[in-house]
Design a protein around this nucleic acid. Structure first.
Lengths: 203, 203
DNA sequence: AAATCGTTTTAAACAATGTTTAAAACAGGG
DNA sequence: CCCTGTTTTAAACATTGTTTAAAACGATTT
């Protein structure tokens, strides 16, 4: 067990860098091996497959980023403030990690096959506390009675989809990268406003 | 030029069927050739590459489906009614063509490379008339003053993203396929409600 | 110190992919 | 009937992820 941890780490690091830089599909295992300075077969020796290697890296990335989101959902903040914070932090997170967006896209793209990774993403959304909160506030009449699943899907959609169609938005509006960033920043207030408005009791 | 149109069509049809059935990435050109009953090289003779073949098929599919959407956006319906119809038709379209969803996912996934297909999608959104309408209604005070780009992105997000995360939603809520379909159906009224609510002047 | 045993590394090959080549088959017009 | 351009074919190519079987290594036992 001399250099074992060492090589495994070298593969992991090289792959992470390349995956993030060029995307999973456009990175070959030979490239990874070259960058890590190791033999090709070692990749399959330590990780059973490229897919497996991706899983490991992805899990690591998600875990690193998801803690704060989960903490917010489980906190005892008021519903509206919770929504504001969640959206804010989530959009910041996706802004800071473009790679994360493209990873998730890759997974969603083949969602039927990528069940393992799907579970990892799924673990990001422990919505029990949040669900309860929505139901209770609805019962109390503080907000409109709302299906928590629908609401959560609405929230995720408004947060994440704009990143997925970034190229489309930029092309359509002749945005520079910086203008797109600004566009996204504006959504940090806009999205919570829409969501909260949809919860307010009818006038 | 004897059987030329014939073979080209045979390739096109076989590929369409396979792409829709198993997805683009999981369909090999040899499979297409076999199904079409033609020689492997003919695929590259008529279409320059697999990518190109995909483009041709995708453009065809989009054109077939997008007419109605464009017609609605350009119509002189009232804003709220226009939103309702657009969302309704769009969600129906995505429900009826799961393949279309997975195609778009594939394209968005590699949006940096797939510029051709991006343009095809982009052509789907001739929002000039719709943009003008939002600005005018805002000026008149009938609705809140709203950035049309943001609003259109909101609308697309709420319509399309749930399809992208279908597996996640099903897994999280233990939905059957039919229950998911029902969930989507519910959104045909829900999504316009949210959007319209977000436009209504503050109370 | 030498031998043994499990772990790590290596070079080579494998099967499957998309793509290209160079020649053959074909069709129609001079 | 031959010539010319189009269509088709079989074979090969380069690149992918993965596997194999042997070599190198390291520590433990004899």
């Amino acid at each position: 067990m001399a250099k074992s941890k060492n090589t495994e780490q070298k593969i992991f690091d090289a792959a992470t860098e390349l995956f993030l830089e060029k995307g999973v599909d456009r990175t070959s295992v030979r490239e990874i091996a070259a960058k890590a300075g190791i033999n090709l077969a070692l990749m399959n020796y330590y990780f059973r497959s490229k897919e497996n290697l991706f899983d490991a890296i992805f899990s690591m990335l998600v875990k690193k980023n998801s803690e704060e989101l989960i903490r917010i959902l489980d906190s005892d903040l008021g519903l509206f403030e919770k929504i504001r914070q969640y959206v804010h932090v989530y959009i910041d997170m996706l802004s800071d990690n473009p790679l994360l967006v493209s990873f998730v896209m890759a997974i969603l793209h083949r969602s039927r096959e990528r069940i393992t990774e799907m579970k990892v993403i799924s673990s990001l959304y422990s919505t029990d506390q949040f669900t309860k909160q929505i139901l209770e506030e609805g019962k109390k009449g503080n907000i409109r009675r709302t299906d928590p699943t629908h609401f959560f899907v609405d929230m995720l959609s408004l947060i994440a989809f704009p990143f997925a169609i970034r190229m489309l938005v930029m092309d359509k509006n002749n945005f520079t990268q910086e203008e797109f960033n600004q566009f996204i920043r504006e959504r940090k207030d806009r999205v919570p406003d829409i969501l909260i408005e949809s919860l307010k009791p009818r006038s």
